[in-house]
C-alpha cells in the first residue's frame, strides 16, 4: 500500500500507485452507479385511454400534451424519450417535449401518411432536484386526419449526448 522500500525510501511511488488504484476503483463504482433511471410517461387523464395498440391521437392545431411524466425531482440533467408515431392520409404534424416550467425541445416534423421512431435526448435546462412535469406533445399542421404517438419509453439520463434541441 504505502510501505517504503529500497529505491523508494519515502514510499512516494507506492503511494502514487495506491492512489491510482483507488481512483480506478472509484471510477468503476461511479460507472456502475451512473444516473440512468427509467421513468415512464402515462396518458394524460384528459385524454381517452390509448387505443388497443397504445397510440394517443390529436387533431389540434396547437401542441397538445398526449403523454405525461410527473417528475418529483429531476435526478438527472437529461431526458431520453423514444416513441413510435404515425400520421393519417394527407396529414402532417409535429412533436416536441415540453416541461411544466415552459422549457421545450425543438419540434420534429412528421410527414404525411407515414410512420417512424423518434428519440429525444433532451437537456431540460432545469435545476437538478426541482420538481416538474414532462409532456410529450403533438400537433397537426395540415390535413384532416390524426397525428398519433405511441406509448413512449423514457429515462432520466446524464447530460452527455443531450442537447437543448433534443434531436
Amino acid at each position: 500500500m504505502t510501505t517504503p522500500f529500497f529505491g523508494d525510501p519515502l514510499g512516494l511511488a507506492a503511494e502514487a500507485r495506491w492512489r491510482e488504484s483507488i481512483e480506478q476503483r472509484l471510477t468503476n463504482l461511479e460507472a456502475r452507479e451512473r444516473v440512468v433511471v427509467p421513468a415512464p410517461l402515462f396518458p394524460r387523464p384528459v385524454n381517452a385511454f390509448p387505443s388497443s395498440d397504445w397510440y394517443q391521437a390529436t387533431t389540434a392545431a396547437g401542441f397538445t400534451p398526449l403523454w405525461e411524466m410527473i417528475v418529483p425531482r429531476w435526478t438527472a440533467l437529461g431526458a431520453w424519450v423514444e416513441f413510435d408515431w404515425r400520421t393519417g392520409a394527407g396529414t402532417t404534424g409535429e412533436v416536441r417535449l415540453l416541461s411544466a416550467l415552459g422549457n421545450a425541445s425543438s419540434a420534429v416534423v412528421l410527414g404525411a401518411a407515414s410512420s417512424g421512431t423518434i428519440t429525444f435526448r433532451w437537456l431540460h435546462n432545469e435545476d437538478i432536484w426541482t420538481d416538474s412535469v414532462l409532456w410529450l406533445t403533438a400537433r397537426r399542421t395540415g390535413g384532416a386526419n390524426s397525428v398519433e404517438v405511441a406509448f413512449p419509453h423514457a429515462a432520466l439520463i446524464p447530460p452527455t449526448g443531450c442537447t437543448l434541441a433534443g434531436v
Binding site: V37, P38, P40, L41, S52, D53, W54, F151, H153, A154
Partner: peptide
C-alpha cells in the same frame, strides 16, 4: 429499475 412495458410489434392488445 422497473421498466415500463408497451405492446410488442404490431400486436393488438385486448382490454388494454
Amino acid at each position: 429499475y422497473n421498466l415500463a412495458t408497451g405492446p410488442g410489434l404490431g400486436i393488438g392488445v385486448a382490454s388494454g
